[in-house]
Design a binder for these strands. Structure first.
Lengths: 116, 116
DNA sequence: CAAACGTGTAACTCATCGGTTACGCTTCAC
DNA sequence: GTGAAGCGTAACCGATGAGTTACACGTTTG
C-alpha cells in the first residue's frame, strides 16, 4: 500500500499511468512526452514497477511498459472505507470499487497492441 | 490533487484519517495513539488540513479534528479513470452489490453532528 | 494572578527524492 | 566487427520531508 500511494504521489508518475491506460509504450516513447531527462523517467518507471503498477517486457532493445491496475484495488478499498460513512451513494460514480476482498488476479492487461 | 496524493502517501496520515472516520478527535487524542512525538503529529495534521482532508475546530484549549472526504473525490475519479478500461463493469457490479448489502452498516458513526 | 494544560511553531538534523550528466550493456543495422 | 540506437544504473546535488527538542501562546483552574 505504501508503495502504491508513494508512486501515486508524483505527478509525472500519475501521468505515465494515464498514458499507459490506453496503450503500451516503450521507455523512450514515454520519456519523449516529458520535459525531463530520459534517466529521470527511467527511475520513475522503476518506482512504478516496484509498486507493481506497471510491467515491462523486453522487446529487442526496447522495453515496453504496460499498466497493471491490480495494486490499485487496495487503494480503492481504502478510499471506500473512508468515504462510506459520508455521501457514499454520491461517490459511487467516481469511485467504483469496494473490491478490497475480491478479484486479485483477473485482467493483467496483457494486450500486445504495440503498433507504434 | 497533488496535495491529496501527497497527504495520502504517509502511513501515519492515512491512519489518522481512518481514526477520524468514526469519531472526531483532539490533537492530543490523536497524538496519544502514535509512538512519535506530539509536534510530529501536529505537523501531519497541518498537512492534512492544507490538503483539505480534515477540518479543525477550536474547543477551549483543545483543537478537535474532523474528517472531510470531499477532496478524495478527485482521487477517486482519477482511480476510476485508470481502472475503468480493465474490469470496470466488474467493479461496478461488485460495488452496487456491496452498497445495497451493507446499507450503511448499523452503527453509522452517528457523531457527525458538527455540520460544515 | 499564577501555575498547569493543550497545541502549534521554530530551529535543526538526517534521510529520501527528483533531477542532471556520465557511463555501461545489449541489440539492431551495415 | 563496428557503430548507432535504446535503456538502465551510478554518482552527485539541491530541495523536501519527517522526526526531535525547545519554546510561545491561549485557556482553564485553584
Amino acid at each position: 500500500m505504501d508503495d502504491v500511494t508513494g508512486a501515486i504521489a508524483d505527478p509525472v508518475r500519475r501521468e505515465i499511468l494515464l498514458m499507459l491506460r490506453d496503450e503500451a509504450l516503450s521507455a523512450g516513447q514515454i520519456a519523449d512526452r516529458f520535459a525531463i531527462s530520459r534517466p529521470a523517467v527511467s527511475r520513475h518507471l522503476r518506482v512504478l514497477r516496484e509498486a507493481g503498477l506497471v510491467r515491462d517486457t523486453a522487446d529487442g532493445r526496447r522495453r515496453v511498459y504496460t499498466l497493471v491496475t491490480t495494486p490499485l484495488d487496495e487503494l480503492a478499498g481504502w478510499l471506500g472505507q473512508l468515504m462510506r460513512p459520508a455521501g457514499w451513494q454520491h461517490h459511487l460514480d467516481a469511485l467504483e470499487t469496494e473490491v478490497y476482498r475480491t478479484r486479485r488476479e483477473r485482467h493483467t492487461a496483457a494486450e500486445n497492441k504495440e503498433s507504434a
